[in-house]
Structure formats: C-alpha cells, structure tokens
Amino acid sequence: MTKRFRLVGIGNAMVDVLSHCDDAFLTANGIEKGIMQLTDMARGVELYDRIGPATEMSGGSAANTIAGFAHLGGKAAYVGKVKDDQLGRIFAHDLRAQGVTYEVPLADRRHEHETGRCIILVTPDGERSMNTYLGVTEHLAPSDIDEATMADAEWIFLEGYRFDGPESHEAFAKAIAAAKGAGGKVALTLSDPFCIDRHHQAFARMIRDDVDMLFANRAEIMAMYDTDFDKALTAAAQQVDTVVCTESEHGVHIVSGGTRIHCPAVPTRVVDATGAGDLFAGAFLWGYVEGHDLETCGMMGNIAASEVISHLGARVEADLKARFRAFGLKI
C-alpha cells in the first residue's frame, strides 16, 4: 500500500536571524561558541538590538531537513507550531513554497508567546552560535499531532531539540505509536550535546525502544553514550538498525548490519555551517527511501551539506540532483 508521505518531520518551527560577528562579540555578550543556547524573549530582543545587519529566513532543524528532502522531489510533511503573526505566516509560506505539506493550525494571535526565532551568529571561520527563543513552538502539544498523517508516512523524522518542550515527549510518543502501528519507521537526530544532557534518559529510552535510524555528529554521539567515538558508534549500532554519524570535514560514518562505511567530506569553503547536518539528513533520507545503497546515501548527504555551508542560511540554493550527477552519482 502506497503511503501519502515518504517522510514527516516534527520539530521546532523557527525563523532564523543570521548575522556575522567576530569572536570578541561572542565573548562580550556571554555567548558560548558553536552551540545552541536557549534564551527568553527579553534576551532575544537584547541580542537582536546588538547584532549587525541580519538576514531573516525560515529555519528550524527538522524543517530544514524536510525542505531539503522536498527539494529533491520527496513527498513530505512537517509538524511544528508557529503563531498567527508576521514571522509565523512567513514560515508557513516558505515551507509550503518548497512543496511541503504544512497543516498545523497557527497559534492564536492572542497567544502570550510569539513565533520562535533563532539568532545565529556566524564567525569568520563559518562556525555558528545559536541563541534560540522557542516561543510558541515550545508549546507543540499531543493535540497538534495528527495520527492519520503519522500513519500515512513511510518514515517520521524527530528533532532532538524538540525534547525541550513541556509536552514534547507525549507528542513524540503519540506520533511514534501512530507511525509504527501502521508499519512506518522512526528516524531521530540528537541535535545538540547540551540537549542530550538535559534529557538523557528520555533520549536513551526512545533510542532503545523506537528508533530505526539515528543521526548524530561526533560530539553528540559521544555525549549520548559517554565514551570515545568508536565505542559510541558501536553502542549505538547495537540499539538501532542504522547509525549515521557526521564528523565535519572528516565526512560521515555509517554503521548498519555489522558493517561500517566511511564517506569522505566534499571540500568546501565554509561561509556558514548552519544547516549542514540538517541538509545532510534530508539528502541521506531521500536517497534511502529511493532505494540507494548506504554509501551513495552518505555521499548525497555530504554533497548537500557542502552546498548549504557554501552560503549564508540553511536552505538549498543550487540544484542538488544536478550536483549529485556532477559527482558521478546515478539517480
């Protein structure tokens, strides 16, 4: 039976505010480099007033993954909450313009919180430091999960950042039950070492019981399993069918069925690392559902990541299929 969606993502619906700065600005404003820090609205406004010229665009980790998947022609839907305000309407329009089904009701404009936004400060080395006001997306509830949509998906893709929401664990549980009950599979991205520290038990339980494919980077998988890199990969592979772990300029390691595959990175001048892992996952999953072997999927992910880090922002600007062909991939 053919399902309506090949992939449905659930995550924090955000609008990214991107600005360049130097390391001294990070230090002066108490910002730890290279990680995601949660802020309240007051802190978000304070930082916004201090940064230089900025670019605003729709973002959010899982939304970026879904947008990349849809760019490649994959039928996809997204679940994440925004408000009926200017940024919320921009977010919804941008995602739908990518061909993504987005049917989550907007939070009422009288809601006390606004659409979430992430101030992303990009230093000259391309590293990004994220300061995130979750806003209304933090309040995604089980009632926002449409069980019919989850049941009509081959895969659901869960964003680790979403664990910070007060009802997120229940929302994820509802989505997983609906998807798995209809024969679907679950992919999870760990998102951030500090997020893992905050919710380690919940992550461990979900990975053990529900996850079929795990996405992480080197720092995240070591934080999850509290051991060195190789041992962490081995431990993860004992719990899930497929482990996909990126390692920046060293490429990606894929472990599945007792086999470990390494795909080298695509050399690229880094302008902005925002979205590298997100677009990697989108391209990898597209290749996977299209029936490509794991090495090809890894190469697709690396090519997509190299494209997105070559410019500002976390959405694709080039034709990824054309780039795949240029690298000799048969699609």
Rank of each mutant, 00 (worst) to 15 (best):
T55N: 06
F69N: 00
I261W: 03
T132Y: 07
D84M: 11
V122M: 05
I145M: 06
D278I: 04
I10D: 00
Y78D: 00
L279P: 00
L233V: 11
G251Q: 07
Y133H: 06
K330W: 07
R89M: 09
E154V: 11
A326E: 14
I51D: 05
T189Y: 08
M36A: 13
G30W: 00
D85I: 10
P267S: 03
I261K: 07
R89C: 08
A42Q: 12
N12Y: 04
R208N: 13
L106I: 03
L7H: 10
T149C: 13
I207H: 08
K3G: 08
V15T: 11
T227H: 04
G74D: 11
A151Y: 03
G160V: 11
S191F: 05
F215Q: 07
L294C: 04
P264C: 00
M57C: 14
P166H: 07
A171E: 08
G80M: 05
A67I: 10
A76G: 01
D146L: 05
L134I: 13
F5T: 06
C245Q: 06
M41Q: 15
D197L: 05
V271K: 00
N12M: 08
V211P: 08
M36E: 08
G73W: 13
R323S: 13
I331F: 15
T27M: 09
G74Y: 09
I145R: 04
L7K: 01
E46T: 11
Y102K: 00
C245D: 06
A232P: 03
K330C: 02
A63P: 02
A177P: 02
K33S: 13
A76H: 01
G183K: 11
G257N: 08
K330Y: 02
C118F: 00
L47G: 05
A182C: 10
L134V: 12
A202I: 14
F25V: 10
M300K: 05
A314I: 06
K231Q: 14
R205Q: 15
F5W: 15
H139V: 03
A235H: 10
Y78T: 03
D226Q: 15
D226T: 06
A42H: 02
P166E: 10
A304R: 02
A273H: 04
T274V: 09
F194S: 08
T132R: 06
L95W: 10
T149V: 15
H71P: 05
E220P: 04
D144K: 03
Q86T: 14
L188G: 14
R260W: 14
E317G: 00
H253A: 10
L38G: 10
R50Y: 11
E167S: 08
A204W: 04
M36Q: 10
R315M: 08
T123A: 10
S248V: 07
M206Y: 05
H250I: 02
D16S: 01
